[in-house]
Computed example of a mutant assay.
Amino acid sequence: MSMLKEFREFAMRGNVVDLAVGVIIGAAFGKIVSSLVADIIMPPLGLLIGGIDFKQFVLTLRPAVGDTPAVVMHYGVFIQNVFDFIIVAFAIFMAIKLINKLNRKKKEEPKAPPAPTKEEVLLTEIRDILKQQKERI
């Protein structure tokens, strides 16, 4: 029973739960960006280079013979994945830059100095009186 309790405490730690949420959101974000690249960016880019779909770029290493399938290197898919990575990295960079900018604004907001305590007011008055007496001499 103590092993189960230990595991539950481990699994419910704040860091583990935060990490799990981050991984799930990251996976969903990755799907969105992959769709953005595959369905929105790559078709016009393929059209610009002559109507070619990047996924069709292949290098046949060994042609199909009989029942043996061809050995094919799909470098077009690799190119698309590179675009995916660049866009995801840029999106994360921009998000972190925005978060840092917002955090900096919070830190840079001028805070009003705290009101002086009664002791500080009294000491300031004593200092001023001593200064006036010294100037009279």
Rank of each mutant, 00 (worst) to 15 (best):
P69W: 03
D53T: 07
L47T: 13
A27R: 11
V17A: 09
P69D: 03
A70F: 07
V17N: 06
V65C: 02
I86A: 15
A64C: 05
K55P: 00
V21D: 03
G66T: 02
A28T: 09
K31G: 09
V77I: 14
Y75V: 02
P43G: 05
D18W: 10
I96N: 14
G50W: 04
V65S: 12
I87D: 00
S35W: 10
G26T: 05
V72H: 08
L48H: 03
V82E: 06
F57E: 00
S35V: 02
N100S: 13
I92S: 03
L19Y: 11
G26F: 10
P63S: 12
T60F: 00
V21P: 01
V71N: 08
A38T: 12
I41A: 10
L61W: 05
Y75W: 15
M94T: 12
I32H: 02
I24V: 14
I99C: 04
G66N: 03
F90V: 11
F85A: 14
F85T: 13
L59I: 12
L48F: 10
I32G: 06
A95I: 15
D18Q: 09
L98G: 04
D84P: 00
F78R: 04
L47E: 13
A64D: 04
K31F: 11
K31H: 11
V72T: 14
P43C: 08
S34Q: 13
V21A: 14
A38D: 13
G26E: 06
